[in-house]
Amino acid sequence: MADIPAVSSTISYSDGQITAWLRGLLTIAWADGDFDPEEQQLITRLTKDELVPHEELGELTVISAEELKAALGEDEVTRENFLRTAVMMAIADGVYSVVEADKIKEFGKVLGVNMSALHSLEATLYDPATCTKEQPQEDVHIDALRPMRHWLDDMDVDDPRVARFLCKMIPPQCPFERDIKLFGKKVVHIPPMCKLNPLYDQLVGLRFRSLSYLADDCGEDISEFI
């Protein structure tokens, strides 16, 4: 029996918008000059398949704030949703660096997005120029991040490519803690992401909304994301 094609809703974003969106995320990932293998692997996965299938990682370049503004268009929700995904990528490892924050604020200012929710996140900033080790984010009082949590929770998922992007970007479960070893000796211990990242619940909630949108509104098989 032939497979029944999935019912898909109308694509909200053009290829040009999605490509600019991805270039914006790359610009933030490269901001600190430390584009590690895990980030490269993530971006490579996101450039394949349905997101921007005609683009390769090596063909994508950084993007200026003005160029990003022109490519995303005038819709305020589109601009704000880009900034939300930018913040999520920056905090995915639990460390929100000064250079990432500066680039996000630059994008937000040019895009005309209300940045007030980001002020609370700046309490978690890590500046390697002035700190010998990252600030333990569990010390940040949870109420201080309430505006940031509400801002992320307010993101609507209404485009199947963006929904798939979020399902790939956000892990399905809290990653296991692990030790990084060099020549057989432990050099650093990485705790579980859910302990490291005070906004992990918001990321998980957004992933769930993306899965629900793909299954309920688009009629897609979401088994590959579970």
Rank of each mutant, 00 (worst) to 15 (best):
P147F: 02
P147Q: 03
P147E: 06
P147Y: 00
P147K: 00
M148K: 08
M148H: 05
R149K: 15
R149H: 10
R149T: 00
R149E: 02
R149S: 07
H150L: 09
H150G: 09
W151L: 03
W151R: 00
L152T: 02
L152N: 01
L152A: 03
L152K: 04
D153W: 00
D153F: 04
D153C: 00
D154Q: 05
D154Y: 02
D154N: 04
M155S: 05
M155F: 06
M155V: 02
D156C: 14
D156H: 09
D156K: 12
V157D: 01
V157Q: 04
V157S: 09
D158T: 10
D159K: 15
D159Q: 07
P160V: 04
P160D: 10
P160Q: 13
P160R: 15
P160F: 15
P160K: 15
R161G: 01
R164W: 05
R164N: 04
F165Q: 02
F165R: 00
F165S: 04
L166A: 06
L166V: 09
C167N: 07
C167M: 14
K168L: 08
K168S: 13
K168G: 11
K168E: 12
M169I: 08
M169Q: 08
M169N: 01
P171Q: 05
P171I: 00
P171S: 11
P172L: 05
Q173L: 14
Q173M: 06
C174R: 14
C174Y: 13
C174T: 15
P175R: 14
P175T: 01
P175A: 08
P175M: 15
F176H: 08
F176D: 08
E177A: 13
E177L: 15
E177D: 04
R178T: 13
D179Q: 14
I180A: 10
I180S: 10
I180N: 10
K181Y: 06
K181T: 05
L182Q: 13
L182K: 14
L182N: 09
G184T: 14
G184K: 14
G184I: 10
G184C: 12
K186G: 13
K186R: 14
K186D: 13
V187G: 07
V187R: 07
V187N: 07
V188C: 06
V188T: 07
V188F: 13
H189P: 15
H189A: 15
I190M: 15
I190K: 15
P191K: 05
P191I: 05
P191F: 06
P192A: 10
P192T: 10
P192C: 12
C194K: 12
K195M: 01
K195T: 05
K195L: 03
L196E: 07
L196Q: 12
L196W: 11
L196C: 10
N197G: 12
N197P: 12
N197K: 09
P198I: 09
P198C: 10
L199C: 03
L199W: 02
L199S: 00
Y200E: 09
Y200A: 12
D201I: 01
D201T: 11
D201Q: 13
L203S: 02
L203W: 04
L203K: 00
L203P: 01
L203I: 01
L203T: 00
V204R: 11
V204A: 11
V204G: 06
V204I: 07
G205I: 04
G205R: 04
G205M: 11
G205Q: 07
L206A: 03
L206Y: 05
